[in-house]
Amino acid sequence: MTADSPTILATSGGLRPGTRTRFEFNKLVHHAVELSGVSGRAPRISHVGTASGDQRWFNHELSEASRVAKFDLSHLNLFTMPNVGNIEEYLLGQDVVWVNGGSVVNLLAVWRAHGLDGIFRRVWEAGVVLAGVSAGSICWFKGGTTDSFGPELRAVDNGLALLPYDNGVHYDSEAARRPTVHRLVADGTLGETHCTDDGVGLVYRGTDLADVVTEAPGKAAYRVRLERPGTPDATVVEEKLEPTAL
C-alpha cells in the first residue's frame, strides 16, 4: 500500500511520554500512517536514526512504542554498516519512513555516502510516505536552520531538496529559531521557509503544501518569505498557518 501521490510529513513532534513504556507514538506519527492509506494489516514503518548515530537504546524504546501502537516497525541502521543488504528494496517495502532528530549535517553526509539521496527520491516517487522530526524534517527540504555545527544556529543548504523550500523547526520552543530564520531569509541565505512549532506537522502532496496539522493545541506553522527582494523596500513577511487538530 502506498500513498496516492508523493507525500511528505515534516514535523516538530511525533513522540510523547509513555504510560508503561518510555515513549509512545503521538498523533503525528499516526497521521503519517493514515496518509499512507494502509489498512487491514499492521502498518510497516522504518525508523531511521542516522542523525543520532543509530543509537540502539533508542531503537529499543521505539520498538516498545511500536508494540503499544501495533505497528510493524523496523530500523534502518547505517552504523557501523547497513543492516540490510538492499536499502532501496527494503525502503520500498515500507508504508512510512520516520526519520528521527539529531544532527542534520551528519545525517546528510552519511546518507550521501550510502546513495540514500537518490534512493529516497525514488522511494518518495513510489508513494512511500516520508516523515520525520527536526533533522528528519529539514532533510527533505533545500535546507534550513541547524545547531549541528555548534550552539549558535547556522544555515544548512544541502538538503535532499525533494521540497523546493527551506525549513525551520522548533519555532516556538527555542528562542533563537525565529530571529535566525528571519535574518537568513532577509539576507537571501534561505528562500521561502516553512516553519513548525513543536507538535505541528506540514503535509506535502508532491511539492505543494497541502495541509497543516497539530497534535498540540495552540500551536501553528508559518511561511516566512521576502517581499520585494532586491529593492530598498525588501521586507521579511511571516504568515501564520493555522493547523487542523488531529
Rank of each mutant, 00 (worst) to 15 (best):
4 D>W: 03
4 D>L: 05
5 S>N: 11
6 P>N: 05
9 L>H: 04
11 T>K: 04
17 P>Q: 03
18 G>T: 01
18 G>S: 02
20 R>Y: 14
26 N>C: 07
26 N>Y: 02
26 N>K: 09
26 N>P: 05
29 V>W: 03
29 V>S: 00
32 A>D: 00
35 L>G: 03
38 V>T: 07
39 S>W: 03
39 S>G: 12
40 G>V: 09
43 P>G: 00
43 P>R: 00
45 I>E: 00
45 I>L: 09
50 T>S: 07
51 A>Q: 03
55 Q>S: 11
60 H>F: 12
62 L>G: 00
62 L>Y: 03
65 A>M: 08
65 A>S: 06
66 S>R: 09
66 S>C: 06
69 A>V: 09
69 A>N: 01
70 K>P: 03
71 F>I: 00
72 D>I: 06
73 L>H: 04
75 H>R: 08
75 H>T: 06
76 L>R: 02
78 L>E: 04
78 L>M: 01
85 G>Y: 02
89 E>P: 08
89 E>R: 07
89 E>Y: 11
91 L>I: 08
93 G>Q: 06
96 V>Y: 06
100 N>Q: 15
103 S>T: 09
104 V>Y: 04
109 A>K: 15
110 V>G: 14
113 A>S: 15
113 A>V: 14
120 F>I: 13
121 R>F: 02
122 R>A: 10
124 W>V: 09
126 A>L: 05
128 V>D: 09
128 V>A: 09
129 V>A: 07
134 S>N: 14
134 S>D: 05
135 A>E: 07
135 A>F: 02
137 S>D: 04
141 F>K: 06
145 T>S: 12
146 T>S: 14
150 G>L: 12
152 E>K: 14
152 E>H: 13
154 R>S: 15
154 R>Q: 15
156 V>E: 11
158 N>D: 15
158 N>P: 10
160 L>Y: 04
163 L>D: 02
163 L>C: 02
164 P>I: 12
167 N>L: 04
168 G>C: 09
169 V>N: 07
172 D>R: 02
173 S>L: 11
174 E>P: 01
174 E>Q: 11
174 E>L: 10
176 A>G: 11
178 R>W: 01
179 P>Y: 05
180 T>W: 00
180 T>Y: 00
192 E>R: 12
194 H>S: 05
196 T>V: 14
196 T>D: 03
197 D>K: 02
198 D>T: 07
203 V>Y: 02
205 R>A: 09
205 R>L: 08
207 T>S: 10
207 T>K: 14
209 L>H: 01
213 V>A: 02
215 E>P: 07
215 E>M: 08
219 K>Q: 09
221 A>V: 02
222 Y>K: 06
226 L>P: 08
227 E>L: 15
230 G>L: 13
231 T>I: 10
231 T>W: 15
232 P>Q: 13
234 A>Q: 15
234 A>H: 15
238 E>P: 10
240 K>S: 11
240 K>R: 15
242 E>S: 14
